[in-house]
Every structure is written in structure tokens, then in C-alpha cells.
Amino acid sequence: MDWYIICTVAFLTGIFASMGLGGGMVLIVYLTVIEGSSQITAQGINLMFFVPIAMMSLILHTRNGLVEWKEAVPAIIWGAASAALFSILANKMDQDILSKAFAVFLIIAGIKELFSSKGKTADDKQ
């Protein structure tokens, strides 16, 4: 186990995650391409990794009054149903197909990021 690689990946993932640039992508790509994990394992690790980081950011953001709970709550309720359904699907699915679907998702997200005309950060606009 190369600790310095793990540290670098974790650090980068944290940075990208908190900037809203998709930290999960870094971690999942590292785990599948370099460590050779299966797609579903990498996704599970990413989910668990995200929880404490999200908690920390959420506490800070709530304190700063940035969280719109009125909007968030219905989204959470509806999201919970589809998250449950699709995580069952992900667990049952053929790994090869799941990894290909993830790759396509990655490419689409990348293209979207690249060509988003606004190119703004949370900060540029305010």
C-alpha cells in the first residue's frame, strides 16, 4: 500500500469535492483504474468517503445560512426513492455494463464542464 499515493488522492478528492467539481470522479477513477477495484466497490467506497466530508461542509454552510432547506427537503424525499431503487439496480447489474455506463457518464459530465459557457464559480457571480 503506497501511503503517499493514497494521501494525494484523498487530498485531491477533498479539494475537488468541496469545490463542486466532482471529487467522486477522482476517487472512483483511481480505485478502478489504478487499484483495480470493481466498479461497485469503488462506488461504495466513494459513498462512504463522501459522508464525513459532506457533514463537515454542511455544518459550515448551514452556519453561514447558505442551505435552502425549503428546497432541499422535497428533493431529499424524492431523491431517497430513486437513490434506493438505483442502488439496488447498481448492485444487481453486470459490472462491465455498470463500468461502461459510468464511463459514458464521466465523458458527458466532462464535456458539459468543458463547454459550460458560464464558466463561473459560486464566487464570481456574487
Binding site: G24, M25, W78, S87, A109
Partner: peptide, 11 residues
């Protein structure tokens, strides 16, 4: 968001 979260564990 739930679909992406459940299916891809990210995004």
C-alpha cells in the same frame, strides 16, 4: 440526483 447517487455512487 438520486439516480446518479444510487447508480454511480457519485455525481
Amino acid at each position: 440526483v438520486g439516480i446518479c447517487n444510487g447508480l454511480f455512487g457519485s455525481g
